[in-house]
């Protein structure tokens, strides 16, 4: 028994060194050498200031910006320090309230728009930090954003197209528009008032 315990403790110690220290250090070394941008959070810089991670969504409620998914993080939406979904069941009345509230807000910001709202715009993402929306959700907001910025719709649409990622190999996942990239690009457009 004593030999067995010694064997167990020694092997555990060695496994800790090998898989718990050497392995992550090795991966960090390779990651920082080959993919430093990705390994450090894919941060987007603007005027020397970090304004976003390309991968973490932010809350937008100004009509001049494209809006992203609902976020159920606490204590406020898109809290990067505490990812979370809503975990509301499909029949939960609170889910209906959240969907209704978002739909009302979208329609209030864009009174003329009578189109049906794409479902991803009124539902919370799994992470609460989803940076993407579907191309349909971008299309729904196109007129509103163009009008609010005094831009023509075609140029906004082509800008959205530039920040849309297709399926991997044309097969896996879903086409998605990166809301952060589009909004940053909108702010950089000349002659639309720029950022507030």
């Amino acid at each position: 028994m004593r030999i067995l315990i010694r064997n167990s403790l020694m092997s555990l110690l060695l496994f800790t060194v090998l898989t718990g220290i050497i392995y992550p250090l090795m991966v960090t070394g390779i990651a920082q050498a080959l993919f430093p941008r990705q390994a450090n959070g894919s941060v987007i810089m603007k005027d020397g200031k970090a304004v976003a991670s390309q991968l973490l969504g932010q809350q937008f409620d100004d009509p001049r910006y494209f809006w992203g998914r609902l976020s159920a993080t606490t204590p406020y939406p898109y809290n990067g320090g505490s990812s979370s979904g809503s975990n509301l069941g499909p029949n939960n009345p609170d889910l209906m309230k959240a969907v209704q509230a978002r739909a009302d807000a979208l329609r209030a910001a864009d009174p003329g728009n009578v189109a049906k709202i794409p479902v991803d715009l009124v539902t919370a993402s799994g992470s609460g930090l989803d940076p993407h929306i579907s191309p349909a959700a971008a299309e729904y907001q196109m007129k509103r954003v163009a009008k609010a910025r005094g831009l023509d719709e075609t140029s906004v649409r082509s800008l959205v197209g530039r920040h849309t990622e297709g399926r991997w190999l044309g097969l896996f996942g879903e086409p998605a528009v990166n809301v952060l990239e589009v909004n940053i690009a909108l702010d950089a457009q000349p002659g639309n008032g720029g950022a507030k």
Partner: peptide, 25 residues
């Protein structure tokens, strides 16, 4: 009844998107 479009199309995965990520659909 809420005027929400859940139909799959070229432009969106549709369906029950609560708790799902847009890039995975």
């Amino acid at each position: 009844s809420l005027g929400v479009d859940q139909q799959a199309s070229q432009l969106q995965p549709g369906g029950n998107m609560e708790g799902k990520e847009a890039r995975f659909g």
